[in-house]
Design a protein around this nucleic acid. Structure first.
Lengths: 177, 177
DNA sequence: TTTCGTGCAAAGCCTTTGCATCCAT
DNA sequence: ATGGATGCAAAGGCTTTGCACGAAA
């Protein structure tokens, strides 16, 4: 129903944003992190990491819960565990909260994927990714001026996507019965 | 207690970000907006606008409620009204939600104040404002490439502010009793 | 055993809303 | 009178947490 998990990567916007080759898989990276915390990669946690990294789409906790709590293959995971694991995945550097839509935190991969920002359509809520090195440079420059040590940034551009700007005559016709 | 409402504007970061001269006061602008909606600028709403524009600090709903619900000068305003009015102030273009701290929406003036972005200290939560035209240009450029019509943007830079980076020997001494 | 992890239900928190009362036109 | 506005309390919606049971070391 919601379109927040749709990533648009057409045109030359994301040409050089193909998934980055990583030495270790998300599962392994998560296991490593858990180890340092004296914890284990349980079946549930593994199920979650896999589900999360199965596709590079934005998602919120509820969507993930829906997918995981309805499994019939014995891989069902409870809502509590999903929430608890999402927090850990963020702490582990595998996920990141990119936005908030409909009062829900929206997550995206932070591992095996290059730094980028988003164009957010206020109409259809679609998140369009883009990467631009100049932004990072400016950010560094500005921060330097005030002695601020940068660890990251988030740029959200609001507006209306091309699709929503375009007048949809075809639909109008349908609406007229 | 929280430091989210502290605006740091030292150095040359905000030299040209002095409050912009506006033709009409926030109250008037709000009244205008309300008129178009067939509504009135009541005593409560006026009290809120004044409190909000009394200083250019970031704040969240709860802080505003605290200030307004404890008044003894007959200007007390309920929590419900504060929330309802905040929404209207945003719709009227007087306020804007700039961030979310401690699960609360953080507001700032969007009227009579120039466009700017923030450096957010992850340690003390201070928001440092800065303005840079180059960012807007880049944003426009990127958006143009995908036919996206920009209405605004939000850039948050995370990291550690100069103050928090600096080792505080003086404090350490005190802590040692 | 002892610690960690899960699931369920309940609790938390910020924010919104139903409703009776009030006020201004 | 009549529709908008306020306050209070209750409800909502997402997220967290207490607790008992189960699994791994």
């Amino acid at each position: 129903m919601t379109a927040i998990s749709m990533n648009v990567m057409k045109g030359n916007l994301m040409n050089d944003l193909a998934a980055v080759d990583v030495a270790v898989s998300p599962e392994d990276k998560f296991r490593e992190y858990l180890m340092t915390q004296g914890k284990r990669l349980t079946t549930e946690r593994e199920t979650i990491v896999r589900e999360v990294f199965a596709s590079h789409e934005h998602f919120d906790a509820d969507q993930l819960v829906s997918r995981l709590s309805q499994r019939t293959d014995g891989k069902r995971v409870s809502r509590s565990t999903v929430y608890r694991t999402l927090t850990q995945l963020v702490d582990a550097g595998l996920l990141r909260v990119v936005a908030r839509t409909n009062d829900r935190d929206v997550y995206e991969h932070d591992y095996g994927y290059p730094q980028h920002d988003h164009l957010i359509c206020s109409e259809c809520k679609t998140l369009i990714e883009f990467a631009d090195d100049a932004i990072k440079e400016i950010v560094e420059q500005v921060a330097r001026e005030s002695g601020f040590r940068v660890s990251g940034h988030r740029l959200e551009v609001y507006g209306k996507c091309a699709e929503c700007c375009r007048p949809k005559r075809r639909h109008r016709k349908t609406d007229m019965i």
